[in-house]
């Protein structure tokens, strides 16, 4: 089987999310990559070095500077004439693009796979990860998004793939235009690749207290900072901190949940963490049912003390 993996990049480097997708694709067959963008020679060269990749297809076009689904998906659909499976990471871009590709190919997408069981059978989470379904497709071509935390990352070095440029003719027309973006500058490790995450919930009470308590502890542990939806909705933390069914799916070595009750939608995003530590004043909080280490008490006393002792 020939697979085509959509490479997520920022115009300069390949994003980590791509590496897990390469691992999933390699279980299906030959791995080819698609690097679409504007001025992407550097990205293509980096992509060609990823271990296990046979070919890198590039499309360099001004209209691809921002990966709009409207422009990327016809391109993918065209390349799929020579490929059997299209795979993208289950990131916001991957989730935006892949289903549109599936519609153009008239196939059902298999979302957010956790494992490759055979060339037509996969497992995927449903009901916010409260159930795992094994699904088999009868479609001739596959369109798949891959949950990054479920697959090891392919090595970014060691490969020597052939780079093949395709033309981007006809891409200029689109019904949508990119206006702008506000991407937060990260001073801490990105959540999806952080080894340790410190997350705060509604109990933090205000943005000031969130940052005054959570940030110093995260710094001591070299951790990324996350939040529950309640904390984000209350404005204590920015949107992209949100962990859960509708936020980021994370699986760090250590996840520290502080003042988070443990609603199923939150657990959906972090329950595959290796070790879960919970600090909560309510000893019956559901978070303790999944926590490896629990500490019952007032976070306003515990967290400063903990930070101090570390």
């Amino acid at each position: 089987m020939k697979t085509l993996v959509w490479v997520e990049h920022d115009g300069k480097t390949v994003k980590d999310a791509t590496l897990a997708v390469v691992t999933a694709a390699a279980k299906l067959g030959d791995v080819h990559l698609l690097v679409a963008g504007k001025g992407i020679d550097g990205v293509a060269a980096e992509a060609a070095k990823i271990a296990g990749v046979a070919e890198v297809h590039t499309v360099d076009n001004a209209s691809l500077e921002h990966p709009l689904a409207e422009t990327v998906s016809p391109l993918v659909a065209k390349l799929m004439a020579d490929h059997d499976a299209f795979l993208a990471p289950a990131t916001s871009n991957g989730k935006n693009i892949a289903p549109r590709v599936a519609a153009l190919l008239d196939v059902m997408q298999i979302s957010d796979i956790l494992s490759v069981e055979s060339d037509n059978t996969f497992t995927r989470p449903i009901y916010a990860g409260n159930a795992i379904a094994t699904v088999q497709t009868s479609d001739k071509k596959l369109v798949i998004t891959v949950r990054g935390t479920a697959f090891d990352k392919a090595s970014p070095e060691g490969g020597n793939a052939k780079v093949i440029a395709s033309d981007g003719a006809g891409l200029e027309q689109s019904v949508s235009t990119y206006v702008g973006s506000e991407i937060a500058k990260l001073e801490r490790p990105e959540l999806t690749s952080a080894k340790v995450i410190v997350s705060g919930g509604r109990a933090l009470g205000s943005s000031e207290q969130f940052h005054a308590l959570i940030d110093p502890l995260a710094d001591k542990l070299g951790a990324g900072v996350g939040a529950s939806r309640a904390a984000v909705d209350a404005g204590y933390a920015p949107n992209d901190y949100q962990v859960g069914q509708t936020g980021k799916i994370v699986a760090p070595e250590v996840y520290v949940a502080i003042g988070i009750s443990g609603a199923i939608q939150h657990l959906a995003g972090m329950k595959d963490s290796k070790t879960i530590i919970a600090i909560n004043k309510d000893e019956d909080a559901p978070i303790f049912q999944v926590a490896d280490i629990g500490l019952v008490g007032d976070l306003f006393k515990i967290v400063p003390e903990l930070t101090e002792k570390l």
Binding site: S92, N93, S176, T177, Y178, S181, E182, L186, D240
Partner: peptide
């Protein structure tokens, strides 16, 4: 979107 927001 991952990392922030985007306008179209």
């Amino acid at each position: 979107v991952d990392g922030g927001s985007e306008t179209e």
